[in-house]
Nucleic acid binder design. Structure first.
Lengths: 330, 330
DNA sequence: GTGAAAGCGCTAACAC
DNA sequence: GTGTTAGCGCTTTCAC
């Protein structure tokens, strides 16, 4: 017995046909005479032959693999994006080559460039500005970005960040809050859009937004930022957080500091992470449709690979999920 | 300009050397005369040449890719496993080919078999029994399983499930609870170990364990199971849940049903999911070291690929994290 | 319908 | 040090 798996040649020899015939049989490219087909079937089965995907990829130039580069798989937004992308990929017989860049912009480019030649296309999430993302155009592979881009000719699936915070701010204004703070994550390129949205809503009411920042989009960062926001000279009545994780950390720490939630301060997040439903008070948030984002991005890429024309960029719409962490001002 | 990326031949032609020389240069296999080295460097840079990893893999038989098959990326245990595995992989210049099998045992085998020929090794999590996992031995690639296996010669990184629930049960006994229930997930092969651990602790005290089951390891399933446990004829004083998600759902629903937590019922989970810290009461749990599990599994695989002898299977030890969801019986 | 032959881009002996 | 050569396992014209 030869070492390793049987090759197409072994099958050809056993069936008494040429390798070309075996190839066509395995790929279902052609019809065969019953006699040959039977021999082929026998040989393939008794040998347990499976074609080598690497060799095939080298010729066809297709790997049936999609590269997915995200910033942090433990961030529930990205967890759901990957979930959605994986689902659609599997349906179309694609597999994910996943890279978690760990919010490390320095590593990002080299890792993605190393990924590109091994995949048919890429789905990328990056904190980089559009100028800093120019190089992605040179990857020579179809790319879908997980956020709206204007200046660059890269297909994308984005989210209306401006509207999201606008809606949250309006929600809070409707509840009677006047002094509203935004606890953001400045390193994210979309942070400015979120600030703009909240600011616009407040401006309409003749109010100003109080902007704070965290060093990471995590619960821990939210905890750390809390005292700065709540014990400063000008305590807000309500706080809009960059995401649900920050909101969760913020709420926990606020309670530790002796504030009653939501009476003393209303808090809202963005993402609709599962856990917002299980904390107390349950978290008012914006559904960012993360899983749908992953699905649509993957579908867009697969369509592009199938030669379909790009149906245009997508902007997912925010949906407010009002829960108990935001209440009318006493 | 030729279409597509430049090949090793283009570089060879431009530098006026043979393709073999270019190959050796690119792989740093050998030293060169300064003159040749300079020409090589020039050619590679001006052409922007990058070697085709597929072609290389075909010859070397190495893809620098590790297949990771998990059951559900949105389950925080697996999210952390992937996080840990990704970290170690990146350090060693490997990439993850990820498959989320969506808790679908029927699909599992075919997906993993399709994965195998494209990777250097695999990390697999499966609910299948050892008998049902026999086929993994025939993958012809090094495999590391994410749980202890006894009957099969597959290297693994497991967790002492029996001890975990034993510890939780003892913790609850120490708090004065006598009537303790276990809310499990029967489809998991490790569920029996968890039952056995809790049962053993109770048996030592001359008590019996009240066993219930859920249909999924999710918060929703925990919610659904709650009334069955809490409104049955024999209400428990404390509940040990299969994991933190089930515990979270259970606690939420128990509150809805009018129970005061933790006074009316103590609840504990397993995994140490981030969110257990942010719910109220904060969740007593067992740290299952999920991220470490991912790291160790990847390290084990990389060691195996480097030809190192297997250092033996690993069993991670549970660590109790006592929080507010478990209190002394009133 | 079936097969012969060329070659995808690269590495690994082995000469020189 | 550098080049020649022989493939890796497969697909794909293009004859027959």
């Amino acid at each position: 017995m030869k070492s390793g798996s049987p090759t197409i040649r072994d099958v050809a020899a056993m069936a008494g046909v040429s390798v070309a015939t075996v190839s066509k049989y395995v790929n279902g490219t052609q019809r065969f005479s019953p006699a040959v087909e039977a021999k082929l079937k026998d040989a393939v089965e008794s040998l347990g032959y499976r074609s080598n995907p690497l060799a095939r990829s080298m010729i066809t130039g297709r790997t049936r693999t999609i590269g997915v580069a995200i910033l942090d798989i433990t961030n529930p937004h990205f967890t759901k994006v990957v979930k959605g992308a994986n689902r659609v990929a599997l349906q179309h017989d694609y597999t994910l080559l996943l890279v978690d860049t760990e919010e490390n912009p320095a590593r990002e480019r080299s890792v993605i460039e190393a990924l590109a030649p091994r995949v048919d296309g890429l789905i990328i999430s990056s904190r980089a500005s559009e100028e800093m993302a120019q190089w992605m155009l040179e990857l020579d592979k179809p790319v879908v970005m997980l956020r709206s881009v204007r200046g660059l000719a890269i297909p994308n699936v984005g989210f209306d960040n401006r509207l999201a915070t606008y809606m949250l701010a309006r929600h809070l204004l409707n509840l009677g809050h006047r002094h509203i703070a935004y606890l953001g994550f400045g390193a994210a390129s979309i942070n400015d859009e979120r600030i703009a949205g909240a600011r616009a809503a407040l401006a309409e009411a003749g109010l100003a937004l109080d902007v704070h920042d965290t060093h990471a989009p995590t619960a821990q960062a939210g905890e750390q930022a809390c005292s700065r926001v709540m014990l400063g000279p000008d305590r807000p009545q309500a706080v809009i957080c960059y995401n649900d994780l920050i909101a969760l950390g913020f709420m926990k720490e606020a309670k530790s500091l002796g504030f009653r939630l939501p009476q003393d301060v209303s808090v809202a997040g963005i993402d609709n992470a599962l856990y917002g439903e299980y904390v107390e008070p349950s978290l008012t948030t914006i559904d960012a449709q993360s899983e749908t984002m992953g699905e649509l991005a993957m579908q867009k890429l697969i369509d592009a690979l199938a030669g379909k024309e790009d149906a245009g960029n997508i902007v997912l719409e925010p949906r407010l999920i009002a829960r108990d962490s935001t209440v009318a001002r006493a």
